[in-house]
C-alpha cells in the first residue's frame, strides 16, 4: 500500500465515534463565469491560474502541492480518489478540464472546476473543527493574495449553487454509529437535525455498510463561520454521547459481545473477504475497541485499513481488477495488519 503516512494515520479526539473532520470552502475567481458555462479550454485556464499562484515562490505554498490531472489518471485511480473522499463521485463522472492540487498527506487539497472554480478541502483525524477550519482559512487567505474571489456584501462568497453562498463553508464530521444504527434511531435523529439546518447522512456506499455517517452544516448564509462550527461541534458531541450510551447497552448483551468477537475472529483468519462483509466486520471491531473488548488495534490503524481495502484503491495496489483476487488480497492484507498490531 501507500508507504507515506496519510492524515488518517494519526490519532484524534473522540475518535471512538468521530472518525474525522472535514472542512470545505467554495470559491470562484472574479470575472470568470461559473464552471457550468466554461468550455474545456477555459477550465484549463482556471487550472493554470490557480497552479501559478500555488507554485509562486512569493507565497508560501510552493512545493506543498502535487497536481493530479483528472484528464490523465486512469479510471481506477479516479475511482480510488472518490473512494478515499478526495473528490466526489459526481466529480469523476466527466474529467475534462478538471484537476486536484493535493498535499502529500492528503490533509489539504484544492479541487478545481467541480461545482466551483476552487473547492478547498481539509481533513483532520477525530474531532478537530478548529484545526480543519484554521488550515482551510489560512490556505484561502494565501490564495486570495494571488486570486480575487467573487464576493457580494449581501450574499457573501458567490457560488454556482446557491446552497453554498455566504461563508461558502461546509464542515462535516464523519461519525461511526453502529449502536444507534442497530436500534434504528438514526432516521429520527436525522429528521430533527434537518430542522436545525444540519444534515446527517449515510456515508458513500461502502461506508454505509460500516455504519458510517456524515454530519454537515447545511446553512452557510446568515451565519458566521465560527457560529456554524460551534453549532456543528455541540450537536456532534450530543450524538457522540448518545452513541456511547447505546454502545454500552449493546455490548452488555451476550449477542452484542458475540457479534463483535466473531468479527475479530473472522478478520484474523478469513482467507477470502468481500468488500461489504469486510466493512461490516471492521465496523464491529471498531466498536469493540471503543468498548475495551479489544486493546488493539488503534483507531488510526482501523481507519487506514478501511481506506486501503476499498475496491479501486486495492486494485491499484494489487494490480488486478479480478474481484476474487481482490477478495483474497483484502483478507490477507487485513490479517497481516491486525496480526502485526496484536504483537506490539
Amino acid at each position: 500500500m501507500n508507504p507515506e503516512k496519510k492524515w488518517f494515520a494519526y490519532a484524534g479526539k473522540e475518535q471512538d465515534v468521530i472518525l474525522n473532520t472535514q472542512v470545505f470552502l467554495s470559491r470562484n475567481i472574479e470575472g470568470i463565469p461559473f464552471v457550468r458555462r466554461l468550455h474545456t479550454a477555459e477550465k484549463q485556464e482556471v487550472i493554470g491560474l490557480v497552479r501559478e499562484v500555488a507554485d509562486s515562490p512569493q507565497l508560501s505554498l510552493s512545493g506543498l502541492f502535487t497536481f493530479i490531472s483528472m484528464e490523465t489518471v486512469s479510471k481506477a485511480q479516479a475511482v480510488s480518489m472518490a473512494e478515499r473522499g478526495l473528490v466526489s463521485p459526481e466529480y469523476i463522472a466527466r474529467r475534462e478540464g478538471k484537476g486536484v492540487l493535493c498535499s502529500q498527506d492528503e490533509a489539504l487539497s484544492i479541487v478545481l472546476n467541480g461545482d466551483d472554480h476552487l473547492l478547498l478541502h481539509t481533513n483532520r483525524p477525530g474531532l478537530d473543527l478548529e484545526g480543519a477550519y484554521d488550515a482551510a482559512d489560512r490556505l484561502e487567505r494565501i490564495l486570495s493574495k494571488g486570486l480575487s474571489f467573487s464576493f457580494d456584501s449581501r450574499f457573501g462568497y458567490l457560488t454556482q449553487n446557491p446552497a453554498n453562498l455566504g461563508t461558502g463553508m461546509h464542515a462535516s464530521l464523519t461519525l461511526h454509529l453502529p449502536a444507534l444504527s442497530a436500534s434504528g434511531s438514526v432516521p429520527r435523529i436525522a429528521a430533527s437535525l434537518s430542522r436545525l439546518g444540519m444534515d446527517l447522512r449515510e456515508g458513500m456506499a461502502a461506508e454505509g455498510e460500516a455504519d458510517i455517517y456524515r454530519l454537515t452544516n447545511r446553512v452557510s448564509l446568515g451565519i458566521s463561520e465560527q457560529e456554524a462550527l460551534f453549532n456543528l461541534k455541540s450537536i456532534g458531541l450530543q450524538i457522540v454521547a448518545q452513541e456511547r450510551e447505546a454502545r454500552k447497552a449493546f455490548c452488555e448483551t451476550e449477542n452484542g459481545k458475540d457479534r463483535i468477537c466473531r468479527a475479530m475472529g473472522t478478520l484474523l483468519y478469513a482467507q477470502v473477504l468481500p468488500q461489504k462483509e469486510a466493512m461490516e466486520l471492521l465496523s464491529s471491531v471498531y466498536m469493540g475497541v471503543s468498548q475495551g473488548i479489544f486493546a488493539k488495534p488503534e483507531y488510526s490503524l482501523l481507519a487506514e485499513i478501511m481506506e486501503n481495502v476499498q475496491p479501486a484503491t486495492l486494485s491499484l495496489a494489487v494490480k488486478s481488477e479480478n474481484s476474487h483476487t481482490l477478495d483474497i488480497a483484502r483478507a490477507k492484507y487485513i490479517q497481516e495488519r491486525l496480526q502485526k498490531a496484536e504483537k506490539i
Binding site: 464576493f151 456584501s153 449581501r154 453562498l165
Partner: peptide, 30 residues
C-alpha cells in the same frame, strides 16, 4: 429562493478584506 434555503439573505461571515469581526458564539449561540 435564497431565503428558503438558508433562512436568511444577509451574509454574516468573513469577507475578502478579512478583518470583519466574526460573530462570536456564546451560550446564546446554541
Amino acid at each position: 429562493v435564497v431565503e428558503r434555503i438558508h433562512g436568511s439573505s444577509r451574509h454574516r461571515g468573513k469577507s475578502p478584506e478579512g478583518n470583519l469581526p466574526q460573530v462570536a458564539p456564546k451560550e446564546e449561540g446554541g
